[in-house]
Design a binder for these strands. Sequence first.
DNA 1: TGTTCGAATGTTATATTGTAACGAACAACA
DNA 2: TGTTGTTCGTTACAATATAACATTCGAACA
Lengths: 154, 154
Amino acid sequence: MTRHDHQLHEGESLKKAARARLTHEGEQWTGMRESVFEALASFEKPASAYDIAETVSKNLGRRVAANSVYRILDLFVGANLARRVESANAYVANQHPACLHDCIFLICDNCGQTVHIDNDSLSSGVREAAKSAGFSAPRPVIEVRGRCTDCEDS
Amino acid sequence: MTRHDHQLHEGESLKKAARARLTHEGEQWTGMRESVFEALASFEKPASAYDIAETVSKNLGRRVAANSVYRILDLFVGANLARRVESANAYVANQHPACLHDCIFLICDNCGQTVHIDNDSLSSGVREAAKSAGFSAPRPVIEVRGRCTDCEDS
DNA sequence: TGTTCGAATGTTATATTGTAACGAACAACA
DNA sequence: TGTTGTTCGTTACAATATAACATTCGAACA
């Protein structure tokens, strides 16, 4: 397991870091994007675009279509503010948007709780294996389905 | 890359192996299941349940609902006759249904062509990392998005 | 200030993927 | 023959995702 010296953000701090990262990419930090980010970060589990749309709608007191949320989530994923969990069709906020990692998600089949770990030797191993097979610009998707500690008995 | 001594099947041979595996699991090899398996195996890329439903419908000369295909695909995945490619919402036939592997899919973002590699040291590394994090019964999902050799210029 | 232009968002429609519920067909077997 | 359980058909619907086009907003500049 690789050491991590960078900062883990949360709450206001995370929002600031996200904003800094997005503007650094030359994108705007709009009210809508802030609302989507706040909603995304408020979930404890990966949230679907529709979950987020619902939360944002409630928070803003008006209907926001999933469509708009998808656009913003795509932007976030591209800018490393969020990650898509492929095997759950859902999204999570990235806790350290400033630095780039291939992360590994552990998703509990029972409760949906998801944790992410970074293991650069594993992920670079996967990258290398892909390159050896002739794949260029590899973007690893590493997820593990299973049971979390809380659910392993039930 | 781990050596593989087992047999790689194709065509009739693959179908026989799949049938053997499924019946060994105590499940029936019905006409419908054979049709779905043939359709699945006929694709060169991962196929969606709806793609398969369409192919089976054409082959049988009558409408087969996606619903039925999903049921059978779920059965196949459970019995190791097929794999689900999570990041593509699609399925591929398993070329060696008799033996169990955590496989790694390489999916071309441009053409959709997918190859799979087996690398037991990587996949067991992922399993171990998950276990260390408290996850039980881990089932790794390892996929890589990128560009295949044919597409890397275009 | 006012205008213009492009980015961002709103709106509606639709495509794609996936489940649920229930009944009919069929095979295995008492 | 009746009974039972699995498989499959059928319909309906839920959830996820994209497309197309209109509108709004804000930055840049005359």
